[in-house]
Design a protein around this nucleic acid. Structure first.
Lengths: 95, 95
DNA sequence: CACCTGTATTGATGAGCGTCAACATAGACA
DNA sequence: TGTCTATGTTGACGCTCATCAATACAGGTG
């Protein structure tokens, strides 16, 4: 594993390395249709700006995408990225 | 996903959220026999105390175990923990 | 237009992290 | 015992991060 590969992958793991972000991500991933409105998942015990901040981090890490539809903003998981991370965690099956 | 589950899982993701740690972990995981001596994997561009520090973090996160055999210390991956993380990243297959 | 709700940004603060130099410890060998 | 190598620990520095209050922006409704 090269230093560059490690940089890229570590950014994604790091994004999931916060309990609030992990819960937000899990909530989006397990929501119906694979997407969720912010209002559906923002009950994680922190303030609204903090939720927004964490969703932005997940987006910057490439784990989520967002789309505004009228009043609400919907977040959705990026499946290809998930698969790549999963392979890193299953070296016996992937390498 | 409860707050406690998120705490536990986030600790493991966080441990892999550093490029140096990810490379160390990957080196151990892909090494012959699933274990590696520190001397085999410490070529990641940081000083020896830093390597030791990161290996300790991975151990505290439950991702690695260590065992001294004579002069050298060998690290080995914890497969059960890997599987649990993998499932989190494959919600379509696990939940 | 004014007003309300949902979401994002700004600015500040306190805590945590990555890194290294220096030092300490463990084991092997003479 | 002394010495050398391999690894871990300590202490400190700079940087990043998580969080919130305050504010701003976007879109809907009247």
């Amino acid at each position: 594993m090269t230093a560059e590969e490690a940089e890229t992958a570590a950014r994604m793991f790091k994004a999931l390395g916060d309990p609030v972000r992990l819960r937000l991500f899990s909530a989006v991933a397990s929501h119906e249709g694979g997407e969720a409105c912010v209002c559906d998942i923002s009950d994680v015990g922190v303030s609204q700006p903090t939720v927004s901040h964490h969703l932005k981090k997940l987006k910057e890490a490439g784990l989520l995408t967002s789309e505004r539809r009228g009043t609400w903003v919907y977040y959705r998981v990026e499946p290809s990225v998930l698969a790549a991370m999963g392979k890193l965690l299953a070296p016996s099956a992937a390498a």
